[in-house]
Computed example of a mutant assay.
Amino acid sequence: MTSMWLPLESNPDVMNEYVSKLGISSSWIYTDVYGFDPELLGFIPRPCRAVLLLFPITEKYEQFRKDEQSRIEQSGQTVSDQVYFVRQTIGNACGTIGLIHSLLNNRDAIDLGNGAIKSIWDQTQGISPEQRAKTLESSKELARIHDESSHQGQTHAPSADEEVDLHFICFVEKERHIYELDGRKPFPINHGVATGDLLNDSVEVIKKFMEREPDQLNFTAIALVRNPDEA
Rank of each mutant, 00 (worst) to 15 (best):
N218I: 05
T31C: 15
F43P: 03
Q123C: 12
E162T: 15
Y84L: 05
G126F: 10
L103F: 13
E17D: 15
E17L: 14
E163Q: 11
K21A: 14
N105A: 02
S159T: 08
R49F: 13
D81E: 15
R176S: 11
G42N: 15
I145C: 03
I145K: 09
K134A: 11
Q216F: 13
N227T: 13
T220F: 04
V79P: 07
Q123Y: 07
S25Q: 07
V225P: 05
V86K: 01
Q154R: 09
G76N: 11
E68I: 07
S149W: 10
Q154N: 12
T135P: 01
Y34R: 10
R144T: 08
T195N: 09
V86W: 00
S10M: 13
G196T: 06
E73M: 14
S10E: 06
K207N: 09
S70A: 12
K21L: 12
P7S: 03
L103A: 06
V33Y: 04
V193E: 14
K60Y: 04
P12D: 03
K66D: 08
I189T: 07
G113I: 12
Y18A: 08
G98A: 10
S70V: 08
K134I: 04
S75W: 01
R132W: 01
G35P: 11
D147Q: 10
E9Q: 11
M210F: 00
F64R: 12
I222C: 07
Y34G: 02
T220V: 06
L199P: 02
E62P: 05
E204A: 08
I90C: 09
D201I: 01
T220G: 03
E148Q: 12
E180F: 01
G113R: 08
Q69V: 07
G95K: 06
N92V: 05
K66Y: 05
I100F: 02
L54V: 11
D32L: 09
F171L: 11
E9K: 02
G95L: 00
C48H: 04
F168H: 12
E9G: 11
R132N: 10
F36I: 02
I145L: 15
Y18R: 03
A143G: 01
A116Q: 04
I29G: 06
Q152K: 13
E173H: 01
D215I: 08
L136W: 08
G76F: 15
E9P: 10
S27N: 15
V164M: 01
R87T: 06
H156F: 06
S70C: 08
H151A: 11
A116I: 14
D229I: 07
D13V: 03
I24F: 03
R212Q: 06
K118H: 15
I100D: 04
Q123V: 05
Y84Q: 07
G183Q: 09
T78L: 14
H191A: 02
K208R: 06
K174H: 07
F171V: 03
L40S: 14
R184W: 07
E163W: 03
N105W: 02
G42K: 11
Q77S: 09
N200V: 04
E141A: 13
L112T: 09
T78N: 13
